[in-house]
C-alpha cells in the first residue's frame, strides 16, 4: 500500500455479460484493460492501491454453472468459480471427503471476507501466499477454463508461472475447479504460520496430504505444498519420493522436512526473513507430517 492509495475505487465500468462466450470475447477484446471479477477481494485492494488500472471488471459469478457445488463419489468434487469459501467450508461433502480444503479456507482472512472470497479467485490471483492453493494442488485440482475457443482443462500443477502470473490468456475464464475422488482414509493438514493466531497472511504455509498406497514401497503416499516461500505455490516432489521409498518413521519425516526446506527459496520481506522462513518450513513440515500420520490412524 502506498501513501497515495486512492481513498475510494478509481473509475471503471462494471460489466455483466449474459453468457460465458460473451464474457470471454469481451475480455479478449479488451485485453490488458479488463479482468474477470469474482469476490473482488484481491481486485479492489489492488485497484485502490493503484496496482490495477482496469477499465472494465467483468462479473463472472453468475454465468453458467459458476455457482455450482457438487459431489459425486465417482467423479469427485466440483466447485464453481463463484462458490465462496464459507460455502465450501459449510458443505457436508467437503467436510466428509475434502476436509483439508475446508481447513485451508478457514485460515483465510475473516468470516465476512470469506462470504465473498473464492477459491478460484485465490488461485487466479496466483499469490505465493494463497492459502487454499496448497490444498488444491495436493488434492489434484483441475481447472475448467472457458476461453474464446471454448472449454479446456488446466491441471493446477502446471498453472502458475510466477507471482501473479498464470497460464491464462486474455479471454480465459476459470469456471470451476474439480477434484478427483479422495482416496479412502486420506488425511491432510494445513499449518499456517501468520503473525496473528488467525486472519493474517502467511509467513509460511505448509500443506501435507497423505494416504495409504500399496503401490509405493513405504505403503504410503505423502505430498506437501508450501506457501510464501517461493515465487509460486510450491509442490515438493522430493518429499513425496523420499516418503514413498523409505519406511515411515520419525527419521523419515525429519529427512523429508529437510528436503522441503531445501526445495524452497524464500525472500526477506515485511512478514518475515528468509532465514526464519527456511527454519519454519522444516519444523512445520515435520510437524504437519506427524499430524497427518496421526490422522491416518497411526
Amino acid at each position: 500500500m502506498s501513501i497515495n492509495a486512492h481513498p475510494e475505487l478509481p473509475e471503471f465500468d462494471y460489466v455483466r455479460p449474459a453468457t460465458l462466450m460473451e464474457a470471454s470475447r469481451f475480455l479478449a477484446e479488451h485485453a490488458g484493460e479488463a479482468r474477470p471479477l469474482l469476490g473482488g477481494t484481491d481486485i479492489f485492494v489492488r485497484m485502490r492501491d493503484g496496482f490495477y488500472h482496469d477499465k472494465y471488471l467483468v462479473d463472472v459469478k453468475h454465468l453458467d454453472s459458476t455457482d455450482e457445488l457438487s459431489y459425486d463419489p465417482q467423479r469427485g468434487l466440483k466447485l464453481g468459480a463463484g462458490v465462496n469459501m464459507n460455502r465450501v467450508m459449510a458443505s457436508p461433502m467437503v467436510q466428509a471427503h475434502y476436509a483439508l480444503l475446508a481447513e485451508a479456507c478457514r485460515s483465510v482472512a475473516s468470516y465476512q471476507l470469506r462470504t465473498r472470497a473464492t477459491i478460484v479467485g485465490n488461485i487466479c490471483n496466483a499469490s505465493p501466499a494463497g492459502d487454499t492453493i496448497g490444498a488444491c494442488l495436493v488434492l489434484g485440482g483441475v481447472l475448467n477454463v472457458h476461453g474464446v475457443g471454448g472449454y479446456r482443462q488446466e491441471p493446477l500443477a502446471t498453472f502458475f508461472r510466477g507471482p501473479g502470473k498464470t497460464v491464462l490468456q486474455p479471454g480465459d475464464i476459470v469456471t470451476s475447479i474439480e477434484f478427483p475422488p479422495a482416496p479412502a482414509g486420506a488425511a491432510g493438514v494445513y499449518i499456517k504460520l501468520g503473525r496473528n493466531t488467525w486472519s493474517d497472511l502467511s509467513i509460511v504455509g505448509v500443506t501435507v496430504y497423505g494416504y495409504a498406497d500399496a503401490g509405493r514401497a513405504s505403503g504410503y503416499r505423502f505430498q506437501a505444498a508450501l506457501a510464501s516461500v517461493a515465487p509460486t505455490p510450491l509442490l515438493v516432489p522430493a518429499l513425496e519420493e523420499h516418503l514413498a521409498s523409505h519406511p515411515i518413521n520419525a527419521e523419515a519425516f525429519r529427512q523429508a522436512a529437510r528436503l522441503a526446506q531445501a526445495a524452497c527459496s524464500p525472500i526477506d520481506d515485511v512478514r518475515g526473513s528468509a532465514r526464519y522462513r527456511k527454519a519454519m518450513v522444516r519444523t512445520l513440515t515435520e510437524k504437519a507430517l506427524q499430524m497427518t500420520w496421526k490422522k491416518l490412524g497411526n
Partner: peptide, 20 residues
C-alpha cells in the same frame, strides 16, 4: 480494505465487508 470489519453488514443474511 476489508481488514477492520467496521463496515460489516448483512447481505442476504450473511456478513460481508461492505467496502469490498
Amino acid at each position: 480494505a476489508g481488514e477492520c470489519g467496521a463496515c460489516t453488514v448483512l447481505l442476504n443474511g450473511e456478513p460481508v465487508n461492505s467496502c469490498m
